[in-house]
């Protein structure tokens, strides 16, 4: 074996500003450019929702589905815990959705060196795009497309389980 080469060496670097958001002790990072707006949970509309969405929020004249991940598994819930104070509106070219969260932190631009999720943990279409080792901690990088897929999966589970 050649110790000079390691399988999980940094593969890319994001010199972009990131946003961290927290849900029940989980901390997820995404690119700041995917954040459309930050709203209050008090602005949610709870009528006419399509489970597993927890509500709708109006932005620029359109309704955006709002999801409320919860607990260790980040399972979608329609019951909004009191610590969910923020509604993070996210969008890319193909998806738009809003996520309820407990904390939001702007991390600013830095040389974020990302590493792939280890093969034994990486689900196809999984929530986490990459890991970031930073200041003796490990953060999880996601994106709008993966969050949208994660919410769709929750919808399928809910539909299957009745």
């Amino acid at each position: 074996m050649n110790p000079a080469t390691r399988a999980d060496r940094p593969t890319s670097a994001h010199e972009a500003a990131l946003v961290a958001f927290g849900v029940d002790g989980h901390r997820l990072l995404l690119l700041q450019r995917e954040v459309v707006s930050l709203e209050s949970v008090l602005d949610l509309r709870r009528t006419g929702i399509d489970p597993p969405a927890a509500g709708l929020i109006e932005w620029a004249g359109e309704d955006w589905p709002v999801y409320c991940p919860s607990g260790a598994m980040l399972a979608m819930t329609a019951t909004i815990p009191p610590q969910r104070r923020f509604c993070l509106l996210l969008g890319d070219d193909r998806h738009r959705l809003a996520i309820l969260c407990d904390q939001v932190e702007m991390l600013g631009a830095a040389d974020w060196r990302t590493r792939p999720v280890p093969a034994c943990m990486a689900k196809p279409d999984g929530l986490i795009e990459a890991l970031i080792a930073h200041r003796e901690t490990v953060d999880c990088l996601t994106n709008t497309a993966r969050l949208a897929a994660f919410c769709r999966r929750a919808a399928r589970v809910e539909s299957r389980d009745g």
Partner: peptide, 25 residues
């Protein structure tokens, strides 16, 4: 240990060791 969401139930956490992110299975 650091918990990574949406990972297999037998392998949900990683640790940092000598700058490497190491899965705990």
């Amino acid at each position: 240990l650091f918990e990574i969401p949406d990972t297999p139930s037998h392998c949900r956490r990683v640790l940092l060791w000598q700058g490497e992110i190491v899965p705990v299975l």
